[in-house]
Design a protein around this nucleic acid. Structure first.
Lengths: 341, 341
DNA sequence: TCCTGGCACTCCGAGCTTCTGAGTGCCAAT
DNA sequence: ATTGGCACTCAGAAGCTCGGAGTGCCAGGA
């Protein structure tokens, strides 16, 4: 049962608190914003908001501060307000040039995102789960050394060396190659890995097929590697800058950032397969040990059509409007770059 | 003109200050250490040390704190004192198993080092400058698509895809391959890159040799990539734990850590090609914007015989004895692992 | 010549009090 | 519904005292 104006007051409180870092009082609101009413009226509205637990007073007779719930309502009502600043738009277009190298492109993206938001930025690698194996190539690079090349249909290529116990002739190599391609090519990464695992179970390695077994093993290893999600990070230093916003130390946050597993689970929780921006605020992240931080993420679509996520992480008291805009813009731009390829 | 006992006093001051984080007075020294003399005598020694600017009193009538110069003398006199703790030794042997994958091995090394020292750990990738190109392989993976595989004699393998404007037959591929291998194989990475650059200058690309030119280009790109020094890092969270040791904020330190360039220059300054441990203390790092941090590094030798460095970074007030021991041990162990290969 | 106990001196920092001002809740009047 | 007025609250800055850890120095003893 909050009036329309009360919501405006909430917006004002969030805005002022984010920029000033100090509890906001009724007086300063009437000063800084053009409500056509007196401070006493604002106070009544604030009482309403407090009733609904959207704001809270740190101490009796002190200004108010938004609660996690308040931030949440604020964010939910936000949606597509603020336009990207001129400088930000220019930065994105300057720094994000197309690049053939995915590693390189994502590294640049994450740096850019952390710079325009002044937060810690995270970019998840596209998952290869839906991509499929195009081809396996075997190349002899020495009498007993075989180069195994795995080619994925989204352009990714990896290779490993395999040592054989006996010299290899071209016939044998070609035989193994045909066999292997029968087993995995055109299948999805997931299916191919499953097929290989099964083969290994059915025909245990013995002296006659040791090379085949070794090759299978390294291919399986490479495929498994794809299924691991990975992410890149930049701007951890920004945490130190916003240190006062964390009650204790930034230690647990930095620690979580090093544990990529935690971050990946966090990303996983935020509607995978949803392209649009979503935010996770304050204690909503408590299960991950990040109860004073908020995360704003957006999905982006990679060349193979998979959806991965990117976003920023910072103190609960962050500039949601600005960060949401920036994250959305970068995600769209990145999708565009990857789609053109 | 410092007496022998004065040096012992310096050692005691460093030890106590490192463990207690508080200025140490003459009384607490006689209490905690078995000097056979009275506090007054210690005071005289401390006056000597202060004369030599090895220690300093933060305020009149307060205990003393080592200066950068004091730490330096302490470290220089240290050399091979403390043995590795049982737990540390076990940790090293547990976590550092041989691994075929250099990335993986170095990632594990850096995590291990940060865990046993509780500092930020850094491991530099071995430079490929002295390694040489073993072989270039070309594989047709489609009518107009060529896979270029670069094999380095230290076991590293990389690949790129090249698109041709016209269909390729086996003859042409084989011709290009022979030509290319003549140009680069058995040469060092540096020499090979130089040779390719020259070829490009001599015969500019035209319609007849566009594939050769493209292949040269990607090989050159791969080789150039090797020459970039890189490093991996772990344990940044430990900075937050030792935050009180930094007068201002840890922001500049975290920032420097993200700028790998800075760290690489820092590593570069510390006698490259020297295998043994060396330390850079406090203001000695001022040119890098790290005047409150110390760095302890050691060289390690990679399989191809190049020397790279690894080490830890932390507040000037750090446990030099322990960190030096740990860094040395990890470097030796890593060298051993890489040498066995 | 080096060491020691004694003594006067310094001053940080913990603990206490005071005081001010920003901010509140409530109420009667509009 | 909105407003001005009023009594009330309390965090935090400023000022104060005071104890204790630590110092420098000196004169006497080994």
């Amino acid at each position: 049962m909050v009036s329309e104006r009360s919501l405006d007051v909430l917006r004002a409180i969030v805005a002022d608190y984010v920029s000033s870092r100090e509890p906001v009082g009724s007086k300063s609101i009437v000063d800084r914003h053009q409500f056509g009413v007196s401070a006493a009226t604002i106070r009544n509205d604030m009482a309403q908001l407090e009733e609904e637990q959207l704001i809270v007073a740190p101490h009796t007779s002190s200004g108010r501060v938004p609660t996690d719930k308040g931030y949440r309502l604020f964010v939910d009502q936000l949606r597509d307000k603020r336009p990207l600043s001129q400088a930000q738009r220019r930065a994105i277009e300057m720094f994000l040039e197309p690049s053939a190298d995915l590693d390189d492109l994502l590294a640049r993206t994450v740096r850019l995102l952390s710079q325009i938001t002044n937060q810690v930025a995270l970019v998840q690698y596209p998952s290869f789960a839906r991509a499929s194996v195009r081809h396996i190539e075997l190349v002899s690079v020495g009498p007993t050394t075989l180069l195994v090349v795995v080619i994925i249909d989204n352009g990714r290529v990896d290779q490993r060396l395999v040592e054989s116990r006996h010299p290899l002739d071209d016939d044998e190599i070609s035989r193994i190659k045909t066999r292997l391609n029968d087993e995995v090519s055109t299948r999805t990464v997931t299916a191919a890995a499953a097929a290989l695992a099964e083969c290994e179970a059915v025909e245990p390695a013995d002296t006659t097929n040791d090379v085949l077994a070794s090759v299978r093993e390294v291919v399986l290893e490479v495929l498994s590697h794809y299924r691991e999600d990975r992410l890149v990070m930049a701007g951890a230093a920004n945490l130190a800058r916003t240190e006062e916003d964390f009650s204790g130390s930034i230690f647990p946050v930095l620690e979580a950032l090093e544990q990529q597993v935690v971050l990946l689970r966090l990303f996983g929780e935020m509607q995978v397969d949803q392209l649009d921006v979503s935010a996770s605020i304050g204690r909503e992240n408590a299960p991950f040990g990040l109860d004073e931080t908020s995360i704003v993420t957006s999905g982006y679509r990679s060349s193979a059509g998979e959806i991965a996520r990117l976003g920023v992480l910072g103190p609960t008291r962050m500039d949601y409007a600005g960060n949401i805009t920036a994250v959305r813009a970068v995600a769209r731009y990145l999708t565009r770059l990857l789609g053109v390829e």
